[in-house]
Design a protein around this nucleic acid. Sequence first.
DNA 1: TTATCTGTATACGTTTTTGCATGGATTGGA
DNA 2: TCCAATCCATGCAAAAACGTATACAGATAA
Lengths: 298, 298
Amino acid sequence: MDWKNVTFDWNQARAVLATAEQGSLSAAAAALGQTQPTLSRQVAAFETALKVTVFERVGRGLTLTPAGAELINHLQDMRDAALGLSLAASGQSQDLEGEVRITGSDVYAAMILPDILTQLRRVAPNLIIDVVADNQIQDLQRREADIAIRHVRPEQPELIARLIGHASGSFYAHQSYLDRHGIPRTVEELSACDFIGLADVDRMIDYFKPLGIHVTANQFKARSANGVVAWELAKAGLGVLPMSDLVAQDCPGMVRLMPDLKMLSFPFWLTTHRELHTSARIRIVFDHLADALRSYVN
Amino acid sequence: MDWKNVTFDWNQARAVLATAEQGSLSAAAAALGQTQPTLSRQVAAFETALKVTVFERVGRGLTLTPAGAELINHLQDMRDAALGLSLAASGQSQDLEGEVRITGSDVYAAMILPDILTQLRRVAPNLIIDVVADNQIQDLQRREADIAIRHVRPEQPELIARLIGHASGSFYAHQSYLDRHGIPRTVEELSACDFIGLADVDRMIDYFKPLGIHVTANQFKARSANGVVAWELAKAGLGVLPMSDLVAQDCPGMVRLMPDLKMLSFPFWLTTHRELHTSARIRIVFDHLADALRSYVN
DNA sequence: TTATCTGTATACGTTTTTGCATGGATTGGA
DNA sequence: TCCAATCCATGCAAAAACGTATACAGATAA
């Protein structure tokens, strides 16, 4: 590597960019937390060093010369890289340590969060992540968790919520079940299947009705309030279970039933308490979760 | 724009990258033209400012920590942008002025160079470009030109030559000619066409023979030693003319004959004299021509 | 026109950064 | 084991950069 072409003063380059974007040396100085004379000298020194007149001094304010305009894109590239560096560094910072508690349904906690947290480990290795897997919604204001992944918007206006996107769900059954009972191709055939029950069978029955699926409680031949267990029951061929497509799609042997059936799509909300604004620790986890979940949903 | 995240010392960032890539503070200092204590302090200050331990001091030499490794890509992005800035700035430099004489065949000079020189104007606005359009090969050592675009490698070993790539040629005729005489679909039919003559008709006849095209001098019903004129004669429908596909492809009305005919492909050489090594003026034109021609050829 | 506001350039004392010299520490080979 | 080579950290004086204060210039409005 030949460094000779890169030994100009990079801080002066930043000063030039700030001046160009802010429109004046004074504004740039304020933005960068320096003084106007400093910016003035840095910009002048940059022009001398690279032998390019970047600005035309026209009375009050400076104007970019055509030569300067050709350089701006490169300066912006430098700034963007510096911004990326800053973000990465704040993740790697030794100061960024401590515990962040994330809550989500047991299914998401078991099926989706591990991958995301593996990526997060790279970005912020000193954080300790506590995953609270519970289908009951935790109370963020009482600090039962710092960040919640839920399908409902929180009611409390004190909480900060970000809509990640919408996910869809479908009915799934294992191939072994379908081999024995046939593949249901209509809502009527589906209504005759065995189902796996989640926490509240009556709520499930009510939830199925608008889809045209009419079942009775005794069709729920296997039950578990734990979503992961219920999913395993379905994988064992014990019946049909509605499941988020996100979770189900990578599961071999499980067949998505009636793909044309329009199941309700449900929103993905990421919620946290006000400390998001003051805690870099929580912010970086929140932002990373938002990014990662968004890429899962889309 | 919020500059707070970017106000760390960018020169320190460069010091960190150089140290990481060179493997030691001493080597980095030598590469950057500074001293080892300076680098030592810059790296330490960077680590303090961003609260990241980038290097592990292990006896002789430093080793990147995992946290540091996460930052290297961003640092390289910054460096790459700085390099781009440096190149652009050297083009825009007020010092980069004077004349550069480029020679090439009249066809390339008229049909290809203008576009390339328009781009070059943006990159190096203070240069004066003199285009020597001549089908005779100019003598670079006698400074009849600074840079030559040719299809032959220069014999003199004192000259610097770069192979740009290979271009192909084909026979072309105007639609109006083909309307009158029909489209030749075999070498025999092509051998019966009228041709446009360039400088030396006998050499053209010899050149056609290995392709299976046998013509006589009196089939060259129109002639010009000037390639652009010959091309215009062909566009007027006066006959068939072999032409570089590069030049011909964007010419409406001109039809490429027998696309399956394997015409010889010819190399593109960019040649200059030794001053390339000492003149930024010539170097930037040479490099820009090489880039632009390469994108034309490929 | 004049007063005022906004913005840039320069002088000067202070702070920060740099290079030189040096000491301490580790590695590799005699 | 000892020596030489290599490399990093630190003290100190010189050099460079910075901030404060101020002077100067164009734009705006009374």
